[in-house]
């Protein structure tokens, strides 16, 4: 694998602790030298803290704590695999080969797709795809922040999403033809139950006011609250799934959702009233919002983000050698 320029950001303070970290990691068993291991740690520090010359980013102690908190043993295994160490591969295969398949089955819920997904990921991990004549393993992007098994699951989920999107784009026209979509009437504009221009306040329609009030109410929420709302109401996730993601108890999520739903309505109404609407008008605007959720969902089956595809690891954006969903 190509080595990053190490001398420029070699943290001097990392050298001493790296010996003890090296011993903890068991990297020696996989033929990784102390110097190479220190380079790996420097590389990770560079990723998360910027160049070592940037002393304002973090103190030496912070970096040492950060390194000590990494999954060193799994990091050593992953990096040794990426560098082609046979013993490391044996260990990796014995530990994760079966798990990869069960993970794939868990994600795809389909045996055939699971096998395909797992094999594909395994090929990526092994580095079948060469770039510039060098075998490049996706394991080089693992930095030990979380467990290796969790990282494998996440990478596999990313791969699944990417494939799903590609596949969807490929077959969507055929499916649409089969479904007679071309004969379907265009999605109508929302029916005008009330005169959308009659509620002009400050030159804006009631819809615009409603949107502005909703956006403001949402912006007042914490990111975690918005995540919870979106997961439950948009994605249809279960309370259990949200709870596990956030590390909360289901009942906490349930209470939070109730609180958020109630609070949002109040805030939107309050926002509308501050825009000059009467209480009755605000209630009507909220209740008679005719943008049917079903139509919206149909028109936005995917939430195309426009952001970059999921990188296999973002040591640098250009290093990501995996698939893109575009």
């Amino acid at each position: 694998m190509p080595k990053r320029a190490q001398s420029g950001h070699r943290a001097g303070a990392a050298a001493a602790p790296s010996v003890s970290l090296y011993e903890r990691s068991g990297a020696a068993a996989y033929g990784v030298s102390v110097a190479r291991f220190a380079d790996i740690l420097d590389e990770i520090l560079h990723k998360y803290f910027g160049p070592a010359s940037n002393s304002a980013s973090a103190s030496t102690e912070q970096k040492a704590d950060f390194c000590a908190g990494l999954r060193l043993e799994e990091l050593a295994l992953a990096r040794a695999c990426a560098e082609g160490n046979e013993r490391a591969w044996e260990d990796f295969i014995s530990r994760y080969r079966r798990k990869l398949h069960s993970m794939a089955l868990h994600i795809t819920r389909d045996a055939a797709h699971a096998a395909e997904l797992a094999d594909s990921l395994f090929a990526d991990l092994y580095g079948v795809n060469a770039r510039d004549g060098l075998r490049r393993s996706k394991l080089v992007f693992y930095t030990g922040r979380g467990s290796l098994e969790g990282w494998l699951r996440t990478v596999m989920a990313q791969e699944f999403i990417n494939r799903y999107r590609k596949q969807k784009r490929t077959v969507s026209l055929e499916e649409q033809t089969e479904q007679g979509v071309q004969f379907a009437a265009a999605v109508p504009e929302p029916a005008c139950i009330f005169d959308r221009t009659s509620d002009r306040t400050s030159g804006r329609t009631s819809d615009q006011l409603l949107e502005a009030a909703t956006d403001e109410a949402l912006s007042e929420l914490s990111a975690e609250d918005r995540f919870t709302l979106a997961s439950y109401y948009l994605d249809g996730r279960t309370l259990a799934e949200i709870a596990r993601t956030l590390g909360l108890h289901e009942s906490s999520v349930s209470r939070r959702l109730d609180r958020l739903a109630t609070g949002l309505r109040k805030r939107i109404l309050a926002g509308l009233r501050t825009q000059g609407m009467s209480h009755a008008q605000a209630m009507e605007a909220l209740a008679t919002d005719v943008r049917d959720i079903g139509l919206n969902l149909r028109s936005r089956l995917t939430q195309d983000s426009g952001a970059k595809a999921f990188p296999g690891g973002s040591i640098s954006a250009g290093d990501a050698g995996n698939t893109s969903h575009d």
């Binding site: 930095t143 990478v155 909703t214 109401y233 952001a307």
Partner: peptide, 26 residues
């Protein structure tokens, strides 16, 4: 579970990510 106004669905969905996706590590 308490229902939320449909406009909230709309606005939640309308909010797109501003940055690149977090990598698998994060």
């Amino acid at each position: 579970m308490t229902e939320i106004p449909k406009i909230v669905y709309d606005r939640l969905r309308a909010a797109g990510p501003e940055r690149a996706h977090p990598d698998a590590d994060l």
